[in-house]
Every structure is written in structure tokens, then in C-alpha cells.
């Protein structure tokens, strides 16, 4: 099993940290993993993306052009990466701020209204965990228990009190994701 993923959105949305949690969770499940950020003069409000590869085998190229899954969190990223999903692959997006929705017919498209839900839950910072929950629902490549272990590993200890809240967000994401 090899899952090639891109997560793309605005800086500050938790794009890189979602990828990091995904990567640590996969390590907890004894899988091979690579996490390749688009580093650069990036800032809050600019665009950010990260390529995450999870596999049972040695990972070849950490930098790839086509993805099994694209997790898209803003319009620019949708415009840029919709074409990069492999035929038969999937695209998950949050419709918040999206004016042109994905149009491809040869891939599966899912919507997770995480921004809205995070607002409703009064914890905007768990936005990315809602999205991750949605992803894990439709692509259960990592078990939830390992995601919690991954969260513990990637969060500094002073934030470990926030883990239950993140767990709730993951579960909420699993509930609200729907195929379009």
C-alpha cells in the first residue's frame, strides 16, 4: 500500500501540522513515511502545501506530481492541484471560500465543511483535525488510536491537555464528510 497525498491551503490553516500529525501517526503504525513541505518565504495568509507519502515499502521520490488524494483548503490550491489527482483518486475540499467547485468526473470528490464546523464547535484551531478526520473516514489508512499517538508525539507536552478536543474534532470530521 502506498498513499500519495498533497495537502494545500493558506498558511495558518494548519496545513503543515496536519501533514506532520499524519506522518507521525503513520510512523506509530510502523509504516514508512515522508513529509515534504513547500518551504520558502511563506507566511500567514500566503499559500502553503505539503506532500505526505505513507507506504509499506521504502519510499522512492518524496516529490511527486500526481497524487492519490488531494486535500484542498482554498481556491488557489483547488485551481492548482485539481488536475494533479490521479484518475480514480480522490479530492477532499472545504467549500468555505470556494467560488469554483471541482469539476472532474474521473475522481471521487468529497466535501468536508470543516471551517463552519470548527466555528460551531467554538474551536477554530481544530479546523485541520476535522479535515483529517474526514480523510480518515474515506481512506482509513491509519487507525484512530495511532493518530492519537501521533498527536501526542507531534504536540509539545504543554498542549497535551488539548488532545481530547482534537479527538472530538477528528470524530466530527468523520461524521460530516460527504461525497459530492
Amino acid at each position: 500500500m502506498t498513499e500519495e497525498i498533497i495537502i494545500a491551503g493558506f498558511g495558518g490553516q494548519g496545513v503543515l501540522s496536519m501533514g506532520k500529525i499524519m506522518a507521525y501517526s503513520a510512523v506509530m503504525q510502523d509504516m514508512e513515511v515522508s513529509w515534504m513541505p513547500s518551504y520558502g518565504p511563506e507566511m500567514r495568509g500566503g499559500t502553503a502545501n505539503v506532500m505526505v507519502i505513507i507506504s509499506d515499502e521504502r519510499i522512492s521520490s518524496p516529490i511527486i506530481r500526481n497524487f492519490d488524494t488531494a486535500i484542498i483548503l482554498n481556491q488557489q490550491s483547488l485551481d492548482k492541484f485539481e488536475e494533479s489527482v490521479k484518475p480514480g483518486g480522490m479530492l477532499i475540499y472545504d467549500s468555505n471560500g470556494i467560488t469554483r467547485h471541482p469539476e472532474r468526473k474521473d475522481i471521487k470528490i468529497y466535501m468536508v465543511d470543516a471551517a463552519e464546523e470548527a466555528g460551531r464547535m467554538k474551536s477554530p484551531k481544530t479546523f485541520n483535525m476535522i479535515v483529517l478526520g474526514g480523510f480518515l473516514k474515506v481512506k482509513p489508512v491509519i487507525r484512530l488510536e495511532n493518530v492519537i499517538k501521533g498527536l501526542k508525539k507531534s504536540l509539545p507536552e504543554r498542549y497535551h491537555n488539548l488532545i481530547p478536543m482534537n479527538e472530538k474534532a477528528l470524530e466530527r470530521g468523520m461524521e460530516i464528510i460527504r461525497e459530492v
Binding site: E32, P37, I59
Partner: peptide, 10 residues
Amino acid sequence: DGAIGQMMEK
């Protein structure tokens, strides 16, 4: 190179 420096792996 910058990719290997910035990349995370096991």
C-alpha cells in the same frame, strides 16, 4: 540539498 534538509522521514 534543501529538500533533504527540510523533509521529514523516519
